[in-house]
Amino acid sequence: MLVEIVVCVFLVIGALFGLVGSFGLLKLQDTMQRLHAPTKATTLGIGGVLIASMLYFLLIKDSFSFHELMITLFLFLTAPISANFLAQTHISLRMKQSDLPESGGAYGWSLFDDPPVMEKPSEPAAPTQAPH
């Protein structure tokens, strides 16, 4: 009974976070704001659903599988990467270089500026001719 309650709580929390993430995707105004909803809320929601599934199969069905852990790890690893790519896409499509703040480093933003020129390794000094 207690196990069922715990599984139900995780299921409901996960589903509500997923719903909040999808609703935030509709409600927020700007693309940069909209990026927040699926990367945080939806990822947390699917984490809750996966925890519920793991507890259900472990405690009620008496079978443990690593698949949930793998899915959790994979989703939590890939969410920031895809969010970063989406932000880059949005910046390159909609924003100009003058909209961005200074990069704060020695070089500009990699989306607009060429990569910094690496200094070539100094060539070995030409062998001096030994005087005859």
Binding site: G18, L25, T31, P38, T42, L75, L93
Partner: peptide
């Protein structure tokens, strides 16, 4: 409004479909 938004919507759809499949798996046992 933009292409980035559509890609973002597709990405979120994939995550939601994964959640739906896991729920269906729990239901089927």
């Amino acid at each position: 409004p933009g292409r980035a938004d559509r890609v973002l919507a597709l990405d979120t759809m994939v995550i939601n479909v994964v959640a739906l499949l896991i729920l269906y798996g729990i239901r089927q046992g």
